[in-house]
Design a protein around this nucleic acid. Structure first.
Lengths: 225, 225
DNA sequence: GCATGGAACTGAACAATGTTCAATAACCTG
DNA sequence: CAGGTTATTGAACATTGTTCAGTTCCATGC
């Protein structure tokens, strides 16, 4: 049989992507195979290769959608009226980031499992990536001199958050004595910002760090022993 | 033919591991296959499965050796006479970490590409991991109250360094405007320590942050625009 | 010196993978 | 309705991890 023409090319593409996402969410990155996706959407492997260059391409598309979702989650977690307090915003962003990674951990993992090999990602993908980072940049902007510095600083700080999140999701938490990832990112962000503000005399929002927040974190730490 | 008995079981194991490391270093994680390793050591696939439970096991063994190497590199980068200055030591550790990751990037990548899937790693492996983290803990110890806090803090900070390093190795550096990873870890560590020290009134080594070091970093940043 | 047991090693086999592409069936146009 | 186009198939290929019945050799006991 051939030429069913029930759906347009773009429709099948969307269906295939959605289905692949479902499979990956259920069975993880490893459980995703061309034949499985094809069977699930009622087509054969061959058709899949008319829609996507190859499996890597398919995964990249999924990752693109994931970045969109992630960005939306982070955006929802930062109400615009709080934009005056960078620390509050960054803490909220980190929590939202962790929450997403936990809720959608297979998807989130795929973000890194795939692109590990490939060196150059397409620009539309990099654009989405920058879009996510952009939220951190905006939050950090008041604490920096210019956009370039915000950009740089955001990457440093967020790479850190990302590292902690990875530790959490990959269940290397026994390494961290069962500490919750949120407490760790809190600590990272607070300490980092403290250093940032201290060495930023010209900034309007400068103020001293708040030791009491650290004491709270320290009490949490000790209660976990 | 069978029963050549040229080497003991342990010898073949070592040879196989070394050969697999060479292949992985040359062709990356993806280029590593059971048949390729078997052929390279002059045996057949079957023999390989007498030496290792499966390919995952083989890779885990390699990762274990990698952790040993890494630990040795980090140790060599921190002469014992500098142990009095935590910041100096941590900066040196980060640089050594990045240097190793760059020099042995396929190996270093394998550390994360593999264990992504597996939930529970064997305890001998976790032990090696802790051994690496231990160096960071020791360096941080003077800035913390007790060992538990040092342990916790080390994980937070090093997850951050790890995140930056990943960004660098996976060549997502276009995201970071071509900044060098070393500058980024410097910034992370300095800011983090500043926050740590500021909120640690009982610590003997307390002192104020050094703004001038940040100005240097900032000049580097601007010169890259 | 010879059988026998066990250890070392092989290589064919299986299932599953990504990927390709000639063949085919259905539709559209004239 | 003929002919061309397009959508779809499914068989085929190479390669992967993994298994295991079989083969070959060595050491031991008689």
């Amino acid at each position: 049989m051939a030429r069913r023409n029930e759906h347009s090319r773009d429709e099948i593409r969307s269906i295939a992507l959605a289905t692949a996402e479902r499979i990956a969410a259920a069975e993880g990155y490893a459980g995703l195979s061309a034949r499985k996706v094809a069977a699930a959407i009622g087509y054969t492997v061959g058709t899949l290769y008319l829609l996507f260059e190859n499996l890597d391409d398919l995964i990249l598309q999924i990752n693109g959608r994931t970045l969109d979702q992630l960005r939306a989650c982070l955006e929802a977690a930062t109400p615009p009226d709080e934009r005056c307090d960078p620390e509050k915003t960054l803490l909220a962003l980190a929590r939202a980031y962790i929450a997403y990674a936990e809720a959608e951990s297979p998807r989130w993992n795929m973000l890194f499992e795939y692109s590990a090999g490939k060196a150059n990602l397409p620009e539309w993908y990099n654009h989405k990536l920058e879009h996510v980072f952009g939220l951190v940049e905006v939050a950090l902007r008041p604490l920096t001199r210019d956009d370039a510095e915000a950009r740089y600083t955001a990457r440093v700080l967020w790479a850190g958050v990302q590292g902690i999140c990875t530790l959490k999701i990959r269940q290397r938490m026994d390494l961290a004595d069962g500490q919750r990832a949120e407490e760790m990112t809190d600590m990272l962000i607070r300490n980092f910002l403290c250093g940032l503000v201290t060495n930023h005399p010209t900034c309007a929002t400068q103020r001293s760090c708040k030791p009491e927040t650290h004491d709270v974190a320290r009490q949490n730490l000790e209660s976990h022993d």
